[in-house]
């Protein structure tokens, strides 16, 4: 699984980076930089929560 963030929606709240700190870091303006690695199956619940809790609903989960 991967997460994809819609940059036009993201307002840099940073919720995703708190939940998924292994995969996401914030740039100096507090916008998320998503790492290249896939999200492991063990973190699927976290990923779902991040997508649900994003205040801008900017996160999509892609299965590949």
């Amino acid at each position: 699984m991967r997460l994809v963030i819609d940059p036009t929606r993201c307002h840099g709240h940073g919720t995703c980076a708190q939940l998924l700190d292994e995969y996401i870091r914030l740039d100096k303006w507090h916008y998320p930089i998503v790492g290249k690695q896939k999200v492991s199956a063990g973190h699927a619940d976290l990923l779902m929560r991040a997508a649900q809790l994003c205040p801008e609903l900017a996160i999509s989960i892609v299965d590949d």
Binding site: P7, T8, H11, D27, W29, H30
Partner: peptide, 11 residues
């Protein structure tokens, strides 16, 4: 910039 994406708007 359309001011939609943070990196464009700030960068």
């Amino acid at each position: 910039s359309a001011g939609q994406c943070g990196p464009c708007m700030h960068g």
